[in-house]
């Protein structure tokens, strides 16, 4: 039984056309209909399953329905159709019970108390989740160590840098040992070092403690570093569910060999590879894994030409994902 099981999930919002002024607001409250009501589907039809210990990327352009899905998985939003089961519970019916088993980080918002020292928010969470004192101390010490919270535990959250705040939010979501962690853009706005720190932490968390992670992000480096599997959605529909490496392979992702020749060659050609570009003695050869392996290609090259240098480029996920957003699946 997978930990998260989603079938034909659907969420439609009814958007009321706005009438002016306080009376308009009151009218909208009193009468169900109001004036012109539009239906917008944020999630159209999505099905997937996530097993224990998986770390899955949930990807899609802005407005694709990612956050809406996460809100339904946590029970904050009631689906308009389809079914969701998380750890044997129906989120929106058993929200409070489920809440003790999940952790959520919304990268663009904080759950920490803005005006108070970070440690105060953590202490409140201990009471919210009823974590025993000893267990809390142990966990706090460990998280403080791993996320390097020490220098700013006693500083008001509003004074923290974005990276520090995000680390604080991560700690806050993990104090109660959740089975599943939902991360909604956890690296948004962070610098390279801060991003890397969070990625290392997440990898460690997943590998060592087996926490299942569902991650939404716009940063392809997050995905290739953290996840083996990704789900791509757009317009509320699932476009892709499979390996992160495989996607580039499958959809236009060719590997590329950049070759510096020792001398100019009139019409260089290697069977199994396509000459993509050429600048003087530098060649860009693209090839598919299933047609020719990199060693075979290199062997063929060195047999024919004198070669000064070689670089192998793996397919670029970002380019593939961008193409999927723009053109749909090929």
């Amino acid at each position: 039984m997978p930990l998260v099981h989603v079938e034909h999930l659907q969420k439609r919002f009814r958007v009321a056309e706005r009438g002016g002024g306080p009376l308009g607001a009151l009218r909208r409250v009193i009468s169900r209909e109001g004036r012109g009501v539009r239906e917008v589907a944020a999630v159209e039809d999505i099905s997937f399953a996530i097993g224990r210990g998986e770390m899955v990327a949930y990807v899609g352009p802005n407005g694709a329905g990612k956050s809406t899905t996460i809100k339904m998985l946590t029970g904050i939003l009631v689906p308009s159709g389809g079914s969701v089961v998380v750890d044997g519970l129906i989120p929106w019916r058993q929200r409070t019970m489920l809440a003790a088993r999940i952790g959520v980080v919304f990268g663009q918002r904080t759950q920490l108390w803005w005006d108070l020292p970070l440690i105060e928010s953590l202490r409140l969470l201990r009471h919210i989740y009823k974590v025993p004192e000893g267990r809390y101390r142990e966990k706090l010490a460990r998280l403080t160590d791993l996320l390097d919270l020490g220098p700013f535990l006693d500083r008001p959250v509003r004074q923290l840098s974005l990276g520090q705040r995000m680390r604080g939010d991560l700690a806050a979501s993990l104090l109660h040992d959740p089975k599943i962690l939902y991360l909604d853009e956890p690296t948004i706005g962070l610098d390279v070092v801060a991003k890397e720190r969070i990625r290392t932490f997440l990898l460690d968390l997943n590998r060592r403690e087996g926490v299942t992670v569902l991650l939404t992000t716009h940063d392809m480096a997050d995905i290739s570093r953290l996840c083996e599997r990704m789900l791509i959605i757009d317009h509320g529909k699932l476009l892709y569910d499979g390996g992160v490496g495989a996607i580039a392979e499958r959809y236009g992702g060719e590997r590329r060999l950049v070759v510096d020749l020792a001398e100019d060659v009139a019409a260089p050609a290697v069977p199994g590879a396509r000459l993509e570009r050429r600048e003087g003695t530098r060649l860009w050869l693209s090839f598919r894994r299933e047609e020719i392996g990199a060693p075979a290609l290199i062997a063929a090259l060195t047999a024919r030409y004198a070669i000064r240098d070689l670089t192998l480029e793996e397919p670029d996920i970002e380019a593939v994902v961008r193409r999927i957003y723009e053109e749909g699946l090929p």
């Binding site: 946590t74 409070t96 003790a100 959520v104 904080t110």
Partner: peptide, 13 residues
């Protein structure tokens, strides 16, 4: 309005 209510509702409270 800000949506930060989501964190409060995702807690056993």
């Amino acid at each position: 309005r800000s949506g930060s209510i989501a964190s409060d509702l995702a807690k056993p409270l």
